[in-house]
């Protein structure tokens, strides 16, 4: 038994050494592949000149428009920057982004403020924006490609999970699930297909679904992080002398009560002397299916009417 002991120990230590060596080798291979593929994806991601992903890059890195419109998919479908530019005599850009709310908007604002100070910002607030939804944090992955190059975006991305710093050591991770979108974004046909007008994405469709009767909106607990981010958005605009207008754009169906988020957003805005316009109950839009593409998005015709109405509220500017 005694003579066996050292040989077992030797075997163990040589196996352990082998394991460490093999693990190191694997790490090197993974690093090389990660670096090569990640760098290639990064090159093609930022090479895009049109499409959904490009609009984020343009908003964060390129736009110099004095008028910016912030919000979710409702913002990108409801505000036509051409109408704003014509009537305000200032170039406008719509930085609205599908499925992303106040957290994303604040990250984009921070990136914009690092480059220049717009004159006017329109922030579109949606019902339920402040609700506690894990999904809203997950959707911040739209900002991952900007994590390394934009320190102002990092604190927002880090809200996704406590491990974002580690995950972002990878070169591929920021482009996770984007392989196909990047390929399409670089394709010639996409430039023709995915046309937007300064960030505005018109929908040429009329809602033909069933017309619902007035319904009550649910009560829900609100996310303190989102509320404080909204307050920071207002504070940053005020401290940089940017005129801010906060709007809740139209919905097809009327509700019997006001949404929790809209109530709170309005109260915070008014407390900071920021104009807040609620179009969610505007009779020019409620139950007018010919102005909507679906129950929450205006079509191009509806967006034209709405954009003009918003400018009427903003003017004189």
């Amino acid at each position: 038994m005694k003579t066996n002991q050292p040989s077992i120990q030797n075997k163990q230590s040589s196996q352990l050494k082998g394991f460490v060596l093999k693990t190191l080798l694997l790490i090197v291979i993974v690093f090389l592949l990660d670096f090569t593929i990640g760098t290639t994806l990064q090159y093609f991601y930022f090479k895009q000149e049109s499409g959904f992903l490009y609009r984020t890059t343009y908003a964060i890195e390129k736009t110099k428009a004095p008028v910016l419109i912030f919000g979710s998919s409702r913002a990108s479908r409801h505000y036509n920057p051409n109408i704003f530019s014509n009537q305000l005599h200032l170039s406008s850009y719509n930085v609205g982004h599908d499925g992303n709310f106040i957290l994303y908007q604040y990250a984009v604002l921070s990136a914009v403020l690092k480059r220049y100070h717009p004159k006017l910002i329109v922030l579109d607030i949606t019902r339920g924006d402040f609700a506690i939804r894990q999904n809203d944090y997950e959707r911040l992955s739209a900002l991952l490609p900007y994590y390394k190059g934009h320190s102002e975006v990092r604190p927002i991305v880090q809200l996704k999970s406590p491990y974002e710093k580690i995950k972002n050591l990878s070169f591929i991770y920021p482009y996770n699930s984007l392989l196909f979108s990047i390929a399409v974004g670089n394709a010639e046909f996409n430039k023709q297909k995915m046309k937007d007008i300064d960030g505005y994405v018109p929908i040429e469709k009329i809602y033909t679904g069933s017309m619902a009767t007035a319904d009550s909106l649910p009560n829900y607990p609100m996310d303190s992080i989102k509320i404080s981010t909204y307050q920071s958005f207002i504070k940053d605009c005020l401290s940089n002398n940017i005129k801010l207008v906060i709007i809740c754009s139209p919905y097809l169906f009327k509700a019997t009560n006001t949404d929790n988020t809209i109530n709170l957003a309005k109260a915070i805005a008014l407390k900071n002397h920021i104009p807040f316009h609620d179009f969610s109950t505007d009779t020019s839009f409620v139950n007018k299916n010919q102005l909507f593409a679906d129950s929450i998005h205006l079509n191009n015709g509806g967006a034209t009417i709405f954009s003009n109405k918003v400018i009427d509220k903003i003017l004189p500017f």
Binding site: L26, L33, I37, Q134, I172, Y173, N176, S177
Partner: peptide, 23 residues
């Protein structure tokens, strides 16, 4: 071949990074 084996593991890890759903 250890090269093939290691490349396979690496490709699987890269697949997770590239196509995985992290959330």
């Amino acid at each position: 071949s250890w090269i093939v084996r290691n490349l396979t593991y690496a490709v699987l890890i890269i697949t997770i990074l590239l196509m995985g759903v992290f959330d």
